[in-house]
Write a protein that binds this DNA or RNA. Structure first.
Lengths: 74, 74
DNA sequence: GTGTGACTAGAAGTCCGTT
DNA sequence: CAACGGACTTCTAGTCACA
């Protein structure tokens, strides 16, 4: 299980939660959580390795716990 | 709720889990997960902002899921 | 056995744009 | 609306000597 796989699981779950909550654009959501649109894009594609602070920030923006956000990572 | 507080919650939980699993020294555990002793120390004290890769690595070393490792973060 | 400050290389994260 | 690239600044990863 590579690190890249973990990031992908995280990214795909983020994308799922974002769309589920009605954020149809990465840009609107990025602005909502105070991050850059290209950065959210990179995370969702599994290319980025976000820090704990960023994970918490995104979780709050989705109104889920950090544990729920990383729940799909094995 | 500052970012520093999140890191502390994470660090304290890590320390708790580490000791609970019989790793009496940071050094032994650090070697077990392939990280530096002083780095683990920094995380446990909330001074570090670990990336997703590091979180996953530590979770595996503790034989818990990443979700369990971040469970105490609000 | 742990806390701490300092350090360098490299990655995180931003901002501009194009496809 | 999203993927992707380049260039940029800020910060983390990883390590050390020392308290």
């Amino acid at each position: 299980m590579s690190e890249f796989t973990h990031r992908q699981a995280f990214g795909e779950h983020l994308r799922h939660l974002r769309q589920e909550q009605g954020w149809s654009s990465q840009e609107d959501f990025a602005h909502h959580v105070g991050l850059d649109r290209t950065y959210i894009s990179g995370i969702e594609r599994g290319r980025r390795n976000p820090t704990l602070d960023i994970i918490v920030k995104i979780a709050h923006g989705l109104q889920v716990t950090p544990a729920q956000l990383v729940a799909t990572i094995k």
